[in-house]
Amino acid sequence: MNDNEVLLIKRSQKGDLAAFEELITDYKRIAYNIALKMLKNKEDAEDASQEALIKVYRSIEQFNMDSTFKTWLYRIVVNTCLDLTRKNKEPVISIDQPIQSGYDTFHMELEDEGLKPDEILDKKLTQEMVLEAIDQLEEGFKTIILLRDIEGLSYEEIAEVLSCNLGTVKSRISRGRQRLKEIMTSKMMQYN
């Protein structure tokens, strides 16, 4: 944390809203993007990231500079999003079972969201594919991969954000990436 950040934090702790807004200038985008990756929905991401930032503002008085502001903020954003995903777990809708509606039954017509085989041949690995694959990761892996490979946090920072020890971080990153590779491979296999 640089001096300016410390100063802004201290002013925010006294309730200075302007200082707080200056403090989070860069973090707003970070928060929004994490939420976007975790929630896969722009509206939800907007709400969740704002909610997280408000939480940060409300509890900034309790921030005691033990950790960096960055990891502290990440933690709040990640936890807010995790809470939301847990709350929003929608009932799974089957896409091949006919839908019953009154006396009629429908078959769901879904657009094929996957890429065409020739596109795969062209691009092999696209960002979209990676993001899709990330989305299919289990929650625990998803968060950690997001923090490591998209946000570029160090192992130590991740340990702080997720409040777990370094060993856990290491093994989870490792397993997460392996899992991601598996998902990607099976996707590739499908289209090939």
Partner: peptide
Amino acid sequence: GIVGKLNEI
């Protein structure tokens, strides 16, 4: 490769 792609996002 995957990590590289992720880093590019």
